[in-house]
Amino acid sequence: MTVLIDPPNWPGPRGLMWSHLVSDTSLEELHTFAGRLGVPVRAFDRDHYDVPETVHAQAVSLGAEAVSSRELLRRLTEGGLRRRKRSS
Rank of each mutant, 00 (worst) to 15 (best):
A64V: 02
F44Y: 15
S88R: 15
G63Q: 06
L27H: 15
P8H: 10
R46D: 04
R74P: 00
R83N: 11
P11M: 04
S68Q: 05
R42C: 05
P13F: 08
A43E: 12
L30E: 05
D45R: 10
G63M: 07
A66I: 00
L16E: 14
T25H: 15
W10P: 00
V22K: 07
W18P: 05
G12H: 10
L62C: 09
R46E: 05
A43F: 12
Q58Y: 06
H48N: 02
P40L: 04
G12S: 07
H56L: 14
V51M: 08
L37Y: 08
P11Y: 09
W18C: 03
G63I: 01
D45Y: 09
M17Y: 14
R46W: 04
P52T: 03
V41T: 11
V22L: 02
D24M: 05
R42H: 14
S19W: 06
S87H: 14
T32M: 09
T54N: 07
P8L: 05
S19R: 04
S69P: 04
R14C: 04
R83Q: 14
L21M: 09
E53R: 02
N9K: 14
M17N: 13
V55F: 09
T25I: 12
L37M: 05
E28P: 01
G12M: 05
H56C: 03
S69L: 01
R42S: 15
S61P: 02
V39T: 12
T32F: 12
R14N: 13
A34G: 08
F33T: 01
F33R: 07
G79W: 01
S19T: 07
D6V: 03
E71N: 02
G12K: 09
A43H: 13
E28K: 14
G63R: 12
V51F: 03
V39Y: 11
E65T: 13
H48K: 05
P8I: 03
L76W: 04
Y49Q: 06
E65P: 02
S68F: 09
S26W: 09
R82I: 00
N9L: 15
A64E: 03
P7W: 02
Y49L: 00
R14H: 15
S88C: 04
H20K: 06
L16M: 13
V60C: 13
I5Q: 08
P52D: 06
H56N: 02
